[in-house]
Amino acid sequence: MVTAAEQGRETRARLMAAATELIAEHGWGAVTTRMVAERAGLRPGLVHYHFTSVTDLLIDASLQTARTEYENVMTGVLAASGPAAMRQILTAISSYTSTDPATVAMSEMMLAATRHERLRRELGRFVAEARAALAEWFRDQQVVADPAATAAVVLALIDGLILHRLIDPTLGSIDPTGPLLRAAGLTEPIASEGNSDDHAHEGERNQD
């Protein structure tokens, strides 16, 4: 027999799943209580029974999506070592497309975070947790002198790649593996063309 508490959790889950889908389809500001209830197959009154407002529902749904996405990516990364971890990140990025509801919802969430303090605060906590975990990974790998700064840059690059792919899907044809590995200190930097010329001239002078 299903208890009242279990039924309540199921109802909340259905409402948040419906909200995430609608955010991706219509944008944060267009989602209404009635839209969510209809998508979830529930009475509109249940939205306000479980959430103070539709905004609180959207925030909770978005935060749950963000938590799930960050944990899915970071679990794989932290279990790997060296370049394999960064390739794990790239594998995750390749699954994010302009038609993926979770990805679109997260982009809407980031914009909404500039207007809603609770969303900004909680999303910031997720990002800080991911950054701290990645910084600890870099310390264990002993590949960079500044693990915390490297973790911040790598996570920013990852978020940027995802957002840019939402805007320009053709970026999916570009392989960012090399640049990301270099940013993470996992490969030797490639000498610039100018430096190569300098070394060539230096060799010629030594021969003279």
Rank of each mutant, 00 (worst) to 15 (best):
L78V: 15
R139G: 04
T68K: 03
L63M: 09
V143P: 05
L123M: 14
V31H: 10
Q141C: 00
A102T: 14
T3D: 05
A130Q: 03
D197C: 01
A18I: 00
R115T: 12
R118G: 13
D60F: 04
H26W: 08
L119R: 11
R9T: 01
R14K: 13
Q142M: 02
A152Q: 10
I23C: 02
L161P: 08
H199S: 04
E129T: 15
D56C: 02
A148M: 09
S173A: 15
S62T: 03
N195G: 04
Y70D: 02
T75W: 07
V154D: 00
N72F: 05
W137A: 01
S94H: 13
D56M: 04
N72Q: 07
T52C: 00
E69G: 01
V153Q: 04
A92C: 06
P176Q: 11
A145V: 09
E204F: 15
R67M: 01
R14F: 03
A128T: 10
E38N: 10
R139M: 08
V143H: 05
L123G: 14
A145E: 14
A184V: 03
G45M: 08
A105K: 10
S196Y: 06
Q142H: 12
Q207T: 10
L15A: 06
A80Y: 04
D175Q: 02
E188H: 11
N72I: 02
W137E: 01
A17D: 13
G185K: 09
H164R: 09
P176M: 08
T3I: 01
A80P: 03
A112E: 12
D140G: 08
A66E: 03
E136W: 01
L58T: 03
H199K: 04
T75N: 11
T65N: 06
V36E: 06
V143S: 11
